[in-house]
Write a protein that binds this DNA or RNA. Structure first.
Lengths: 243, 243
DNA sequence: CGCTAGGTTGAGGTACGTCAAGCTAAGTGG
DNA sequence: CCACTTAGCTTGACGTACCTCAACCTAGCG
């Protein structure tokens, strides 16, 4: 595994706290395997018991769950640098799948190796702990969005969150980023029907708040979007601090 | 701090994996402070930066978030034995409050002490990691419920989840448990209005599925409730296994 | 006895879902 | 080059799950 790939993870961790050279070396020296996925592929299938965890190096991935009628809900999104499947280190059978929403690249390391590194480097372990705690904080916000916000607020919140996360990972410039997904996928993220999703996207377009075409979106007025969404980025834990 | 209080936490951890006597001793030897809270009190306030974490010893606590109109959503519940505020070890400013939904008792330990114990006992650290990962798994399920399930299914799912968690913590017998909360609080958990919450509670009552009065609820037909909710307890990670 | 918190019910409104049709752009085969 | 198909987007009409407002009821309590 060439080093540049692992750098996306190291950069993500260094957004949380400064790392020692030894901690970085420990990460680099893990036996990483790189795999490429096409849009629609499954990175981690439901029902399996993973023995390795993966870091997303490129693309957009989603955690997909189904209700009993077969409707799907994407309960979480992952971007470049996210340690997507750190959870599986602690959990057993996957109760959902991780799927590629766009073409993706990911690197995988064995659970045993990760556990060894965590035992040897307690501060590294705390950084991993921070990643899982941050994921949980994002998940709580999504819960609030689905429980107590209108469709348009939900969409605005999603876009505000994504642009901040993508800026942090170096995948957004000028309030814009690649978003090559269909409105059907967006509907599954927002917990809406396709038709209603289309209508609120149109609303934001007509209000001059977003420009979304050919797989790229630009937020034309972040201040107003953040006001609509009641977006406060604290929960993303992007401030570097001793942990 | 007398030992019996810490035992609720040790019991919760031992539901995940066997612990060594040394690990238990390390937990017991932490400087725990016990505090009692009345219904409605705040255990951990929004906007603060906690320097200690708490374990719930008795009662029901909720994580409460607000939308900009001031409507509240309870995004997570905690029962006896839950390490409620382990997250704050890794995070900074609280973006929500933890409140007592019933009278509660909790024990608090300093972050620094917990970090020391985790550095010294890597397996203990992995168990804490498992707790946070499990919380996140529960949160993903709530996201699915709010996004893609009808009100009655949501309520059924909540009750099925609660009875399993309370059985595990020894607070439920014969499919019943104490639930001394108002329907207004239940509405904030389910993301519904009070009126509609009342209607679906009445539905489940009339269908002979639940008996809820005087602060106690009994699930009269768990099989049918689980079918309505599409409830599969795997995600609660209650199987003891090496972690 | 009046007050209050909580539960219950009805009537009407709204944010969303469902169904259906038509549109466009890209790809495919002749 | 043109039919033809298909995926995705868009719009209209209508249905429904849930919300809001309002009234009333009950039990507990000072």
């Amino acid at each position: 595994m060439e080093k540049p790939k692992v750098n996306a993870l190291i950069a993500a961790l260094e957004r949380k706290d400064i790392m020692t050279p030894e901690e970085k070396a420990a990460l680099v020296s893990l036996q990483w395997t790189r795999r490429a996925f096409s849009k629609g592929d499954v990175l981690v299938p439901e029902g399996t018991v993973p023995t390795e965890s993966c870091v997303l190096i490129e693309g957009l991935a989603g955690r997909t769950m189904l209700n009993k009628e077969g409707q799907s809900q994407i309960v979480a999104l992952h971007v470049r640098g996210d340690f997507v499947d750190l959870h599986s280190l602690a959990l057993q059978v996957m109760d959902h799948s991780v799927t590629a929403l766009t073409d993706c690249e990911a690197i995988f390391a064995a659970h045993d190796d990760i556990r060894c590194a965590m035992a040897e480097w307690p501060h590294l372990a705390r950084l991993f702990f921070t990643l899982v705690a941050t994921d949980a904080a994002v998940q709580r916000n999504w819960t609030l969005n689905l429980g107590r916000k209108l469709a348009e607020q939900r969409l605005a919140h999603l876009l505000c969150e994504l642009v901040v996360r993508l800026e942090a990972s170096g995948s957004s410039r000028d309030d814009g980023f690649g978003l090559p997904i269909t409105q059907a996928v967006l509907a599954d993220i927002l917990g809406l029907s396709i038709v209603h999703t289309n209508r609120i996207v149109s609303n934001l377009r007509r209000s001059g708040l977003i420009d979304w075409r050919e797989g790229s979106i630009r937020l034309l007025d972040r201040e107003r979007l953040e006001a609509i969404a009641d977006f406060h980025p604290n929960y993303l834990n992007l401030i570097r601090t001793p942990r």
